[in-house]
């Protein structure tokens, strides 16, 4: 359904973002075809998280154009972008720590409630149907990430790896068309990373487009269709994982140490 000729899901043109004296992103352009997993890699401070913040609307770009599924994003605040189908997780985990695991996921259904206004005060049949539907869907998402048994636990009390998975479940609750993941494997042990990989592979199998910022090269090569290598806020390389491993510039700047 999505050949190489299909219209891109996301197009970024000449994005710029400066923080004080730091040019975090400096003239970055790329396109993301539908149902594609794009890995973004690069050394610390390369501007990967800034790129995700520009896409999700946490920061506004200083210059450049962004379009997502035919809609111009640049002027839209973060919550409007989420409504268009952009969901994300955070490098530094930002769960609702004092809410239960279940409540974290339920909050993700914000845009999907179908309740007549008066039933917010006098709970009627539509209210209860909506509640059942959301709880069922939340249960499925929690089962998907393996956290169903922890539903009543405060999110802040979960183990680190579980928190990363819960952030993914919460993002999925918004029914995204594009999922932005900022270092989902950071801080995970081998077993946890494997659990994550299985989930991401499943999502990929469903045709969910993803942009995956990740340092774990094994995860990247097993999941990604495309790789974007960033260096000092700019594009050093874009192509398939296989081509990246042959690229002299990438090897010199980034992979050299790891592959040697």
């Amino acid at each position: 359904m999505t050949g190489p000729g299909a219209a891109p899901l996301l197009t970024a043109e000449d994005l710029h973002k400066r923080f004080g004296g730091v040019q975090a992103v400096g003239g970055l352009s790329f396109t993301l075809p539908p149902a594609t997993v794009l890995a973004v890699i690069g050394p610390n401070g390369a501007g990967k998280s800034t790129l995700l913040n520009l896409l999700s609307g946490v920061h506004r770009a200083d210059a450049g154009r962004l379009s997502f599924a035919g809609t111009e994003l640049a002027a839209l605040p973060a919550h409007r972008r989420a409504r268009l189908g952009l969901a994300r997780t955070f490098q530094k985990i930002r769960l609702f720590r004092h809410l239960s695991v279940l409540e974290n996921v339920l909050a993700g259904f914000y845009t999907q409630h179908r309740i007549p206004t008066w039933q917010y005060l006098l709970h009627g049949p539509a209210f209860h149907a909506d509640r059942r539907r959301c709880r069922q869907a939340a249960a499925e998402l929690l089962a998907f990430v393996g956290l169903l048994a922890r539903a009543a636990t405060p999110a802040g009390a979960l183990a680190y790896g579980e928190q990363r998975l819960l952030e993914i479940a919460r993002a999925l609750a918004t029914q995204p068309r594009l999922l932005l993941l900022d270092e989902p494997a950071a801080g995970l042990n081998g077993a946890e990373t494997e659990a994550l990989r299985v989930r991401l592979t499943a999502l990929r199998g469903r045709g969910l487009a993803m942009i995956l910022v990740e340092h774990d090269m094994d995860l990247v090569t097993r999941i990604a269709d495309q790789v974007l290598v960033m260096h000092y806020g700019q594009k050093l390389f874009a192509g398939t994982p296989a081509a990246m491993r042959e690229d002299a510039g990438v090897i010199a700047a980034y992979l050299g140490g790891e592959l040697a």
């Binding site: 919550h79 989420a82 955070f90 909050a107």
Partner: peptide, 30 residues
């Protein structure tokens, strides 16, 4: 009235706002 309102999805929305505005916005919450 407050009890009914807070037991509805509005309760979760306000809790999200209270806990983390950036996360809340990433879920579509204005």
């Amino acid at each position: 009235a407050l009890r009914a309102l807070l037991a509805s999805p509005v309760g979760a929305t306000l809790a999200a706002l209270r806990e983390d505005e950036i996360s809340a916005a990433s879920l579509g919450i204005d």
